[in-house]
Design a protein around this nucleic acid. Structure first.
Lengths: 215, 215
DNA sequence: ATCGTTACCGACCAACTAGTCGTTAGTATA
DNA sequence: TATACTAACGACTAGTTGGTCGGTAACGAT
């Protein structure tokens, strides 16, 4: 029996070589980068780790991206396109104000439990200063757009006599703020138990009902 | 004129050697570490940078701390002792509910504009996972304590007939949440212009008045 | 003055890692 | 099957940085 050309006790699975087109490989790399970057931050993440998770070697990765920072940039830019809030789906409930509020809060909290969104948010806060223009773009496309849409929606409800003209109608970001609080807790303390999340959701609904519902 | 023993164009001020007692040097090191860590994150910060900002060399720094992680730990632990909210100062205003609310919101927003607090918060979110026990301690000492104190205060106001029994009385964290929203914006987008900060403050007051004031 | 203590210096080392590049091997086309 | 193309490999380089250590100098005590 000939001795193998590799040490015989190699238990690792040596996937021979997987050749993929850039269109399928690049998303794999970005998925891997999201996991690695958000787990350890930009500097502590090694290119080799991203490459390994994406199923290729560092050299292979450099065939698709010219540097670590380019991977990071592409990663954040990809997350720009995701719509955060589909206001349209709220219109189905616009007859009953309470169910509209509940649906809205549920939509917001669903974002909180989305791991991809959480990872992106963590990167945005801790490493966003590397790409100020991308962050500014995200602010426009996501945060400001959300505030605007909420404002339009609520003012229409007021005009239709469905709800009171409250401070949160004039300042729609107040509606989002309880979610910001929960997000901060999740970033600082890790995932919250479902019970606490449900309580946060209910408290949020209570407050909005108190502010908006006609007595 | 004899040539100096150093290159003549050395413009840097070579402070000969400043010998300080640990009691005065260590705070200097932690101050420097807060600036450096919060500006660039844990991994991107070099020991030499902290040392230079603290006015000594790397070797000198290692006379006080046995490693980079120990500096970081001492830094976060120091910030634990700072009281975040002096509930007592609110009691002076407890006669007039509106002025109590305004004073409370002003206290919270003052924290937001405190650069030390902002830097600590940034570190807590982006690098807190390195020291989970310190973070847990911070949660107990600061966040939970604040929620508790707010709850006590508000329930007393309700009992005295000063304000309504609102959702925010049952869930005091809702009162803090607009501040969380502003904090997130500051972390992601840098310092906000004073005008926006004032608008956020006013909106916050408006909402709380709407929720709490007897009509 | 001298002596002991210790905060501090700075050259050095060892480990780590971003990025390079000549080579290898899948895949498509003829 | 032969050939061209290119995704992928992996050993290597160059630069960076956490940590060490023998020595130096400031300061208090006698």
């Amino acid at each position: 029996m000939p001795t193998s050309d590799k040490p015989a006790d190699e238990t690792e699975t040596r996937t021979p070589r997987q050749r993929l087109s850039p269109d399928t490989r690049i998303p794999l790399i970005l998925d891997a980068a999201l996991v690695e970057f958000s787990a350890r931050g930009y500097n502590a993440t090694r290119i080799d780790d991203i490459a390994a998770r994406a199923g290729l070697s560092k050299g292979g990765l450099y065939a698709h991206f010219s540097g670590k920072d380019k991977v990071f940039e592409a990663l954040l830019k990809r997350s720009l396109v995701a719509p955060v809030l589909e206001i349209e789906s709220l219109l189905d409930h616009s007859a009953d104000m309470r169910s509209l509020i509940e649906h809205l809060v549920d939509l917001l909290h669903a974002q909180l439990t989305n791991p991809v969104m959480r990872a992106t948010a963590r990167l945005l806060f801790s490493e966003g200063h590397r790409l100020p223009d991308v962050v500014a773009l995200w602010r426009q496309n996501t945060l400001d757009a959300m505030h605007f849409q909420l404002g339009v929606l609520l003012r229409r409800c007021v005009a239709q006599g469905l709800c009171k003209d409250s401070a949160v109608v004039r300042h729609p970001w107040l509606i989002l703020s309880p979610v910001a609080h929960t997000l901060i807790q999740q970033l600082a303390f890790g995932t919250l138990p479902p019970k606490e999340l449900r309580q946060a959701r209910d408290a949020h609904v209570d407050m909005l009902c108190e502010l908006l519902l006609m007595t």
